Computed example of a mutant assay.
Amino acid sequence: MNKKPHISRKPAARRQRGVALVEALVGILIFAFGIIGLVGLQVAMTRAQGSAKYRADAAYLSSQVLGNMWADRANLASYNTGAACDAHAPCSDFVQKVESGLPAGAVEISATAATGVVSMTLTWSTSAEGTHSHVVSSSIN
Rank of each mutant, 00 (worst) to 15 (best):
S138I: 01
S51A: 11
A87N: 13
Y60V: 13
G40D: 06
G34E: 09
T123M: 00
A44V: 09
E129G: 07
N68H: 10
A58R: 01
Y60K: 10
L102W: 04
E108Q: 08
S138E: 02
Q49K: 10
I35N: 07
Q16M: 12
L122N: 04
V43T: 12
T115G: 01
P103I: 04
K3N: 13
N141F: 07
A83L: 09
V136D: 02
T115R: 02
T123Y: 00
G82N: 07
V107Y: 04
A32M: 14
S139R: 05
L76M: 06
S119E: 04
V95N: 10
H6C: 09
G18M: 03
L25P: 08
A114R: 05
N2A: 14
H88P: 06
H132T: 00
A20D: 10
A74I: 02
T121W: 00
D57T: 14
V65M: 09
I35T: 13
M1Q: 14
A89M: 11
A128P: 02
K4R: 14
A20H: 06
V117T: 06
G27S: 13
A24W: 11
V98A: 03
D72P: 05
S133G: 00
I109N: 03
E108R: 02
A128E: 14
V136R: 03
N80I: 11
A128D: 14
H132D: 02
R55I: 08
S8N: 14
N80Y: 06
R15P: 01
S119F: 00
S127V: 14
I140M: 09
Q64C: 09
E129Y: 02
V26Q: 07
S100E: 15
S133K: 02
I7F: 08
A83M: 04
L76C: 11
Q96Y: 08
I36D: 01
Y54D: 15
P5Y: 02
W70G: 13
T46E: 08
L61Y: 14
R73L: 09
S110L: 05
A12M: 10
A104L: 09
C91G: 09
V43H: 11
K97N: 12
P5R: 10
T121N: 03
A114L: 09
L122G: 04
F31I: 15
V22E: 03
A71N: 11
V107Q: 02
T115L: 03
V65P: 04
Q16W: 05
A13Y: 10
S119D: 06
S110I: 04
A114I: 02
G18N: 03
S125W: 01
E99H: 07
P90W: 07
R73K: 15
S133Y: 00
M45T: 15
V43I: 14
